[in-house]
Amino acid sequence: MPIETTDIARLAQILENSGVDTIEIEEPGLTLKLVVDTRPRIAASASPAAATAPAADHFVTAKADVAGHFRAAHPWQDKPFVAPGQRIEAGAMLGLVKIGLLYAPVVAPTAGIVDAVIAENGAMVGYGTPIVRILPHAPSNPLN
């Protein structure tokens, strides 16, 4: 299958989102190597990251473990698997990643409350792409 320019752009996006810095694809007659520049950017460092960092630490992120298209709801069901504010158990299904005709589940790594569905419905996601942000149940601070 030939690699299109749009595929490369998408792959680069996946690499950046997942924190992977290099990928090499080899096919007969074709080698593609992508390297993401991970050096800190001057402009980005201007924002005070420290102010938001502690809050972000409380969250656990459910990630995709395969590459494909994210589906917030099953195509036969109107309601998405989860919505912000919803209480979930560990192992709960949060969404699907569609690869060809297969639907792989995205599963909650921990019990808690859904803070946000980060991935956009229909978006291309890859291994490690954040899908759902969860505020876990803290043992010291039981929510129920």
């Binding site: 099953h74 195509p75 299904m93 569609k98 005709l101 297969l102 639907y103 792989a104 589940p105 599963v107």
Partner: peptide
């Protein structure tokens, strides 16, 4: 065996 779905 892992949970998995297919397109109807």
């Amino acid at each position: 065996i892992g949970e998995l779905g297919i397109e109807p």
